[in-house]
Design a protein around this nucleic acid. Structure first.
Lengths: 334, 334
DNA sequence: CTGAAAGCGCTTACAG
DNA sequence: CTGAAAGCGCTTACAG
């Protein structure tokens, strides 16, 4: 077995209390003792047991992070930001893939509670009441990323989806487009669905472009739905000149479908995405998009959460700023 | 504070030993006692403390997973496979992003040791001797994914890189190509670098195509290097008709660079990638590639590791099979 | 400067 | 069928 603090104490001829003190730099021992103890620690290759420590301190230095889909480009980017910051602060991350499923989420929350995580980051999903209650029962802070909730006390890190969508559409309008379609995410999605539709509507209104419901279709943020909805759009409103997709993945679906159909982007139709995942820069043609600083958001979430854990203060919601990344899928209409 | 086993015991008028028994379904109590205890557990919303449990059982039901780059499409896919299987078996995953950096990796290994993880999955990186020693010292099983090592005892899950590369190149040859370039990964990379180059060489040799070193260039598996190396290739060997990239990301870089240069894929030049990440199906044109079953590999790794943890047996290495996914970036030369 | 002892929340022989 | 007690590997008053 691995050596314990007892082994170190015995070998160094001191008490375990003393070993613990030098381990934690608490002071209250002679230099000689310290030397001796450290020497033995090295000899034995001793490492403190964080589990035992956690039992006493009631701190595990572990954070649970829940994603609807860890392997999506979107989640990956956030995860990287979270992980990197947390690691710098000596916290570990346990990842949970909820599949956006209620039962699964609840099971994870229970698991995280049993494992005594110090806090929770909840990403890209609606914080249902039952989740909220479960987290309340755990008695640990939570922060939402790319999400928001009605429970006033839950801090979040997100962009202003309505404004960002409005900017995207105004960008298109600025380039001379009027026949602008939108491929939204889920119709019922109050997070990234309806707010972005509102932004679309607001932009049209601002520029006196009448809204025609045939130009608004619904996907589910994923690639395939982008392909499908774009084709549908082409049937119903063939005169469309630009498409605003509520996610990069769907925008990439549009690119893919267009390629298959022999439609040239941006020559025939312009496309703007939403998210700014790393991928958006790799596709052909490079995608113009409204970028969220995903990695940064992950970092801020981790930062906020850890502060909350360590000070006990509850944090505020934070709106981070989006930006339009101009690449090559939007053409100026003349 | 959250209720403990003591609170339950007191309220149910039994000893904590009894509560523990019903908690763990150990038998040795009357039905009436069981009812009562379960009732109190529900009333109090009691959840056992996995930390306390772990201290005794010396099992944390936690697995550490190390990736050089969590947010890459490649790692994401593996992670998803690992997470999903592990969750089904009631294990949690703590993710570590090593940046392929020695110090960082070692620090993580130490952290995982302190946190008493039950096992380790080490992905897509060379298991350096110092890592191996650190893991040995932890006294837990490890399995490598998309990696391999000289230490005979370390199980792995991977494809046969040499064979897969050979198949890719033979596929190109079968389509009539002779002027086949390869963009390899790192020159020094013994995992996914040299074995794939060997496969390339073997395929040429099998078909009596003389090897010309100008057709072999080196990237680093990432997107940008694909762009750069493709442009370089065009300078030195403009007569090239097909490119084999040792990763999908680099292949996508080729697509991107080709688009910029006005070169049509596959009309002017054919491209085949390696990995089969989800992304390869989203790009334009859809990428033909040698696919590794990444998610499946993650699953197998988790399965192997957990078996090893629970039985104490050391596992064997496993070669999984690759397959060529034909899409639209390779054209038949006539 | 140092150690004995209590305790964190559990599990597990042991005894009855 | 049930409970008292020891113990997992630590930390932290408390006493000296």
């Amino acid at each position: 077995m691995n050596p314990t603090i007892k082994d170190v104490a015995k070998r160094a001829n001191v008490s375990i209390a003393t070993v613990s003190r030098v381990l934690n730099n608490l002071g209250g021992y002679s230099d000689k003792t310290k030397q001796k103890v450290n020497e033995v620690i090295r000899e034995l290759g001793y490492q403190p047991n964080a589990i035992a420590r956690g039992l006493i301190n009631k701190r595990t230095h572990t954070i649970g992070v829940l994603f609807p889909n860890v392997s999506s480009a979107f989640s990956s980017d956030i995860l990287q930001g979270v992980e990197d910051y947390a690691h710098g602060r000596n916290y570990s991350i346990v990842v949970c893939n909820t599949d956006d499923d209620g039962k699964r989420t609840l099971k994870y929350l229970q698991l995280l509670r049993e494992k005594q995580v110090d806090g929770i980051i909840f990403s890209s999903s609606v914080l249902k009441e039952e989740y909220y209650e479960a987290i309340q029962a755990m008695n640990v802070p939570v922060v939402l990323v790319s999400s928001e909730s009605n429970y006033a006390t839950v801090p979040y890190v997100k962009v202003d989806d309505c404004l960002a969508a409005c900017d995207a559409v105004e960008y298109l309008i600025g380039k001379g487009h009027r026949k602008i379609a939108m491929i939204s995410g889920g119709k019922e999605d109050v997070l990234a669905g309806s707010p972005r539709v509102d932004g679309y509507l607001r932009a049209l209104q601002k520029h006196q472009i009448p809204f025609d419901s045939r130009y608004l279709v619904y996907g589910d943020f994923r690639f395939e739905s982008g392909c499908i909805q774009f084709e549908a759009l082409l049937q119903t409103v063939p005169d469309v000149t630009a498409v605003f997709a509520a996610s990069d993945e769907m925008a990439i679906g549009v690119l893919s479908a267009a390629y298959k159909l022999g439609i040239r982007i941006p020559d025939d139709i312009s496309v703007i995405g939403f998210d700014g995942v790393q991928l958006s820069n790799m596709v052909v043609p490079p995608l113009t998009t409204v970028s969220q600083p995903l990695q940064e958001m992950g970092k801020i979430a981790a930062e906020t959460l850890i502060r909350s854990i360590e000070t006990g203060e509850t944090a505020e919601g934070i709106i981070v700023s989006h930006s339009i990344v101009e690449r090559q899928t939007v053409r100026t209409l003349t």
